[in-house]
Design a protein around this nucleic acid. Structure first.
Lengths: 351, 351
DNA sequence: TCAATATACTGAAACGTTACAGATTGCCAA
DNA sequence: TTGGCAATCTGTAACGTTTCAGTATATTGA
């Protein structure tokens, strides 16, 4: 018989990954006892518990995920559901880092579940739930009446949304206060004497479109400034479209003297469109933009920015899902991130 | 007895997810037969096979991943290993989309495994291999003598690297031809009469640092231009550092009249640094930069760009790992992406 | 002293899948 | 007729884990 044949108990070759059976053999206990000792079950003697845990640590035991998952249904997986066409570049990378930061010292893995324009956004969520592929889900591009949230609420699977819903249903979320952002931006521009403001909106249909538009409108009437409608684009449009439409806008007689943009990439296009018409940023028009990385000031120093931290969003969302999975009240897992004040140009790094 | 109690065979409640047992019950066959019929095993009758597959499709049977994984060890998971500090934003999002595009119609899931500055880059890879968490791994920031590639080669786990190694070992990779990029950039600048060129390099230690530097040096001597050493920064440095060091560089007597930058974010900082000293892009100095999204021309129209497609890289890498898993020769799963020509400003979208 | 009870541990079964080692049937050659 | 063989199908075991239903021993109360 081959000398390296694996024993029924324990390992002779020391090559295979240790299992509960290995631990049971080494400690002289039953696998049940070992299993319970590792999870601090009450009916295990204190010394036995310590002994088992010591040995487990020594030989680097790690529970087999497939075993656990098959037996308990627990996947130890969080899924981040992303739209492969319309998510912002910076959003994807930062939110992933934020999530991984939080789950780093948990047994959780992060899987990325994509969907594209052609698909119903509900598809990937349905897949995840039906196949039981994740213990928790994070979705973005949240809508006021979001079928995905409704579905997951029905099926009882923990999730968190980036952005709020407005369905009268309670669930964890993290959101940036876009109402406040738009308001601050308007007040800032008004404070500089700008009177005719235009808004580059978030995608129509998403909840924060409403927040932004309302913040904009409320602040406009508060400061007594006027709106120049600019409904032909949103930040979901291509750079080229935004640039062209901005140029069209700026050639009108009633062109705005202040523009507020909901995303950095759109802002680049807006500025290009402005300059295409020969107008000058800071003289003819001022622009306030949200950004998620410190790049816009390099682009044009005349830009005003408000920072939105997507890495924080990722962390908060991960914490929220884990909290729900861990049994906390969904209602207690909601957070709203306040915008920074509007920041003007400042010189970095130089002495 | 509760009426909704689950039968030993089949489902009465029709609420649970179908398994092989469900299928076996419905077709009147044994689970073994069903299992084999679903994977087109040869010893199953043609009609039985069709019948089983029909029923399976009808009731939406999906193999339980945990069951398969426990039994076979196959995880159906590809892991993308990312550095949470130094990866480029655009890299992360595009490469993820590229990968998901390819694995979309396979049973594979993508998990993101992060590591940070404080950790040995080998750690996450070791974790993946030791716990058997993935069938294939994709790594970036590849080094000429890469311990991760060496390790995975030893352990026999399929992987692909973004960037090449130089260890005399064969493995799948996808790379951008940075030697060609640097060469093209030099020739372009020389063609405009630029004679003293500086290079903002990739991170020292990565393989493509060498490729870039060599392409730069070879082309310099080919066209008879000179190098202005600029070794105090790489694209891994912060925006602020690059900006400051560029300004220092541009204040020297022997300042360059042409700069080549290996990444778009660094280019923003370089341009800012140039302008901090009162010099003008296009007049005093020309800059050629790599970019992965069409943004630099919006930034300064005088910039010259070469496009690198990270989404393509993601797809190629995914194809490569899947190929290796599927039994193809590692040596046949290598691809090199040629740079586009150097592109000057052009106006988009306008009529 | 005896039963009741608490304490510490254990084997067997089950989750869903695949691989192994048959079992059954029909057909053909000798 | 019989033996052999191909074509189809099947039960059992195993992957590693947790849960269920115990068992054995010591401790307690009366």
């Amino acid at each position: 018989m081959d000398r390296r044949t694996k024993d029924k108990d324990g390992d002779t070759s020391a090559k295979e990954r240790p299992t509960l059976k290995t631990l049971a053999f080494m400690t002289g206990l039953g696998v049940t006892t070992v299993s319970r000792a590792l999870k601090d079950a009450p009916e295990i003697g204190a010394e036995t518990r310590r002994r088992v845990q010591l040995v487990a640590k020594q030989i680097g035991y790690r529970p087999n995920r497939a075993g656990v998952r098959l037996r308990t249904g627990k996947t130890n997986v969080i899924s981040l559901v992303l739209n492969t066409e319309h998510e912002l570049m910076s959003f994807v990378s930062d939110i992933i880092y934020g999530v991984t930061e939080v789950i780093a010292d948990t047994p959780y893995h992060l899987i990325v579940t994509p969907y594209s324009r052609s698909q119903d956004p509900l598809d990937p969520v349905r897949y995840l739930v039906e196949t039981g592929s994740a213990d928790g889900v994070i979705i973005s591009r949240t809508q006021p009446d979001d079928p995905r949230a409704r579905y997951m609420l029905e099926r009882g699977i923990p999730f968190a949304t980036h952005g709020r819903t407005d369905m009268g249903l309670v669930h964890p979320y993290h959101d940036f206060d876009n109402y406040a952002f738009a308001g601050e931006a308007v007040r800032h521009l008004a404070g500089m004497g700008r009177r005719r403001l235009a808004l580059v909106t978030p995608p129509v249909g998403l909840t924060y479109y409403g927040h932004t538009v309302n913040g904009f409108a409320d602040a406009l009437s508060e400061v007594g400034a006027g709106e120049v409608p600019f409904n032909t684009v949103s930040i979901d449009h291509t750079i080229e479209q935004i640039r062209m439409r901005t140029a069209q806008l700026m050639r009108r007689d009633d062109r705005p003297d202040g523009i507020i943009s909901s995303a950095a990439a759109a802002t680049l296009a807006v500025v290009a469109g402005i300059e295409d018409t020969g107008l000058k940023l800071g003289r003819d028009v001022d622009v306030v933009s949200k950004q998620s990385s410190e790049l816009l000031h390099l682009f044009r120093r005349e830009l005003f920015v408000v920072n939105e931290n997507f890495r924080l969003a990722g962390s908060e969302l991960a914490r929220a899902v884990l909290g729900w999975i861990g049994g906390k009240e969904p209602g207690s897992l909601q957070s709203l991130s306040k915008p920074s004040e509007v920041l003007p140009y400042r010189h970095w790094g130089g002495q």
